[in-house]
Amino acid sequence: MASSSSAANATAAAKYWEYFQLQKEAITAMVAQSQDASQAVRELDSSLREAYIFLPPYDLKRFNDDLEELRALLQQKRGGASKKQGFKFKSAVARPSNAVSTIVNTASPSSADLPVAEPTYNGVHMPPAPSTRPSYSFTGIDDRWIAADPLQLLGEDRLQGPTDCELRDISNSIVDLRPISHSLRALNCHRVQNSVVICGPFSGSATVRDSAGCAMVLGVRQFRLENSRAIDVYLFCTSHPIIERSSGVRFAPYPLELQSSQIQREFDATQLSSQPNSFDKVDDFNWLKRQASPNWSLQKLLPSANDWALLDDASRPCTQSLHALIKRMS
């Protein structure tokens, strides 16, 4: 059944696959260095069209998706310069910085007042999960000091068993999840910019995507970072943390300064501390060479006890604490 032509096709497909990966890497590198890669993308596109005859459908779909991604990247780079200027007026809405009680405990998940965009998939309308299922969600927050409240759940307000927490579209804020971390089993962060996220230990996984300029304090079983840059991670992790399509990531152990007796009890309860902390055994999925990955490093200059103490003083304006804890913010 395996005719010689299908074998030849398979070889050609494998060869083309290698060629495509090389080109893709080259284009990504060019874009990163702000060179014009549009010619290279066009060439790749036409080579793909020639390869249509021998590529299996799954590969074809893959290549087309990748190509689309490259075009988007190119577009983003071009649009980047003009976009920036429109983005500058956030300081104009800065709140009076001497407001005494900066603890914003509304935590925003009171479901009714937030117009959450209801996702549809392939035209199928999905009922938003929050309506029936209890989970924590903090979305669309700028310049606030948030301390999560164990009672403010989406959906039912009584919580039976562990749940998950989602942070989405958060900027210039401090999010303190310590009050709820004991009931968490998963934490997903999307698009968190220039913020500090602090969380107690929990027995589950944390994922951070599309974020930049943040400091994150986490005690987890698994840690994943994707498509992010300039993140400081203070971590207790019982498995190898991984980074993917990210750069400028610095790792440090979970700060002793934050290990209050309460947090220590939680470490014991989750049994995380019965395993060694592997915060420094990072795997970079985009760096498979033997030499150290240039995308991450261990953080040498740690924040002082005074810096961490800022997190317990919610009366300060959060910009001040952000400056202290995200040192390289420019």
Binding site: A129, R133, P162
Partner: peptide, 19 residues
């Protein structure tokens, strides 16, 4: 998977999303 998490979608909801 992860039905031990209270916020998880049910089997039926996932069946619908995955069509």
């Amino acid at each position: 998977n992860k039905q031990d998490i209270a916020g998880a979608l049910s089997k039926d909801e996932i069946q619908r999303v995955l069509e």
